[in-house]
Design a protein around this nucleic acid. Structure first.
Length: 221
DNA sequence: TGCCAGGCCCTCTTTAGGGCCTT
């Protein structure tokens, strides 16, 4: 079985939008290969201004901590090198994508990586979950947690396990050989009501392709 | 001074509104 590597990332930030001047204060990420977390990235960074009391208490990241950290540019440059062109995942990816792209733009770089959203996928795959907040899904899926939320590496790690659980579920439910990243992207985009039919059609096509490959192989032997 | 996100997605929809998610 061959599964494309993905990087699951999470930012803690000074607020909701880089358009309002907000910047990241921590990035955490895990690299997943073959359903396993094989590498991790975590760094605090200094946004260059005072962070609010609300963010300090939400994340536990204090002004003193970020004052001792390297500036955003330095950390984001290392992070951009680390992710390379690996496909990216985040929970409510629109949020993290805005910050990633804004910081890359400040470095004169741009994102080539495809990126998709674990929250949108989870709405299709776990419609029975009470809601689709990360903490609720972690409980819903029985994912191990030490109870720490709103720290970048913890959240990335839990989102990583959620991603693995969703890929597993798709493989089991639809009897798939492999779950390509593009399938997860499609799943996040199509209407929830059409998801099941789409996945069944995909699985049929995948079986047809693997049958004809097996047939070709038997002819060439 | 006061205000400021934004994309998804459902529905009592599409000439719109409001809840969900992320910090």
């Amino acid at each position: 079985m061959h599964t494309m590597p993905v990087i699951v990332l999470d930012f803690e930030t000074t607020g909701m939008s880089p358009d309002l001047g907000d910047r990241p204060i921590e990035v955490g990420a895990v690299r997943i290969e073959h359903d396993l977390i094989v590498d991790r990235f975590q760094e605090l960074m200094n946004p260059g201004f005072t962070i609010s009391w609300f963010i300090e208490s939400l994340t536990g990241i204090s002004n003193q901590l970020v004052a001792e950290a390297p500036p955003c540019e330095e950390v984001m440059s290392r992070f951009a090198d680390w992710i390379g062109d690996t496909p990216l995942v985040a929970h409510n990816a629109g949020f993290d994508r805005k910050f990633l792209d804004a910081e890359l733009a400040l470095l004169g770089r741009s994102r080539e990586n495809p990126m998709t959203c674990s929250m949108l996928a989870s709405r299709r795959l776990f419609p029975e979950s009470p809601n689709h907040k990360l903490a609720t899904l972690v409980r819903h899926c029985g994912i191990f947690t030490d109870g720490t939320f709103h720290r970048a590496l913890n959240d990335a790690e839990m989102t990583g396990h959620l991603w693995i659980a969703m890929v597993d579920l798709l493989r089991d439910r639809y009897d798939l050989d492999a779950v390509p990243f593009s399938l997860m992207q499609d799943l996040s985009r199509i209407a929830r009501a059409k998801a099941d039919r789409y996945l069944r059609t995909f699985a049929q096509q995948q079986r047809r392709v693997s049958r004809s490959l097996a047939q070709e192989e038997s002819w060439t032997q």
